[in-house]
Simulated assay, not measured.
Amino acid sequence: MSFGDPNPNPNNPYGQQPGQPPQGQPGYGYPQQGQPQGQPGYGYPQGQPGSGYPQQAPGTLQANNGYINVPVLGTVQVASMGRRLGARCIDAVVIGVVYAIFSAIGIAGAMGVADSVDECGSSLDPGYQSCVNEASSGFIATMLGMILVFGLITLLYEWLMISLLGATVGKMALGLKVVKENTGLNPGLGGGFIRWIIPIVGVFLCYIGALLVYLSPFFDNSGKLQGWHDRAAGTLVIKK
């Protein structure tokens, strides 16, 4: 045996102490040949549950940052209450102009009915009372007709536009859209009607109920800013 030989044992080609396994063999920090690195168990998560890369389900709000996953649309931003209020104001102006046109027509008709009372003659005439009754009935019919027209305008404007287009003129102007939360599509006639009728029912409570419905998104603690009418219809108001 030579003192300069680094491997005094010719039967130990790795030059290691007896009982120690040779380095570079499977099980000692090196993956086996043919086994790709980056698989589970080698410190490379692949987006599986528990790996730190969770998969977001549709309808999941992302960390309360105002973004939400919606089927078909992907990740979209929930509309702010400021934009929604602005859209509502624009819609009020549009409907107000239409109301004004029909109101002018209705007032002209009511004035015509009032003038007809003067044509009934003297109260001493035999047919005076029946003439007045007929004129009064015409006036009442005119006023009821105006109320009916106003209701139809609101119905057709809000219901049909939201149902078929997902937006009214005000929402289009401010880049907003109403979609079904579980599909990402337009609400449809059923969803649009439910969303429309709930505030209308509140109108019969001295408008307080309607005001509460429109303010109800402030009470939504889910972060989706869904009003009571949105929850009933299963809709979301998003920014396009």
Rank of each mutant, 00 (worst) to 15 (best):
G50W: 11
S103K: 10
K171H: 13
I198Y: 01
L148C: 04
S136N: 04
V178S: 05
S163W: 11
S163G: 15
G106P: 05
V113W: 09
N65D: 14
L176S: 15
I208D: 05
L85Q: 04
Y30Q: 14
A173F: 09
L185D: 15
P31V: 13
G190K: 12
A92L: 08
L124D: 01
S122E: 02
P18L: 02
E119F: 01
Q39K: 08
S163I: 13
R84C: 05
T154L: 10
Y44E: 12
L174M: 11
G27I: 14
L61H: 06
C131K: 00
A114Y: 04
N7T: 10
R88Q: 11
G27W: 09
T142G: 01
N64P: 12
V169G: 07
D230C: 03
T75M: 15
V203D: 03
A114N: 03
A79M: 08
L85S: 08
P71R: 06
P8H: 10
L176R: 07
I208H: 02
A63Y: 15
G82C: 07
W228K: 02
Y44H: 14
P6V: 12
I198E: 02
V98K: 09
G86N: 08
D91F: 14
Q16A: 10
G112E: 01
P6A: 05
E158V: 11
W228S: 01
V237K: 07
I197D: 13
A232T: 05
F150A: 02
V70W: 09
Y30F: 12
V117F: 02
I107L: 08
G209I: 12
G74P: 14
P21S: 09
A135L: 01
I198L: 06
L61E: 07
Q55M: 13
E158P: 14
L144K: 04
G127S: 00
N7K: 11
V76D: 11
G34S: 08
Q48N: 14
S122T: 00
N221K: 10
T235W: 05
G223R: 11
C131F: 00
K177F: 06
L155W: 11
L73P: 08
M143W: 05
Y53H: 15
Y214A: 04
A114I: 00
P58N: 11
M81Q: 04
Y214M: 05
L73I: 06
Y128L: 00
G86D: 08
P26T: 12
L124W: 01
G109N: 01
L212S: 03
S122I: 00
L61R: 09
A210G: 10
G234P: 10
G188K: 12
A233M: 11
Q33L: 08
M161T: 09
N7H: 06
I147P: 04
L61S: 12
V237H: 07
P54M: 12
P199K: 02
Q37C: 12
Y99T: 09
A104K: 02
S222E: 08
G82R: 09
C131R: 00
P10D: 03
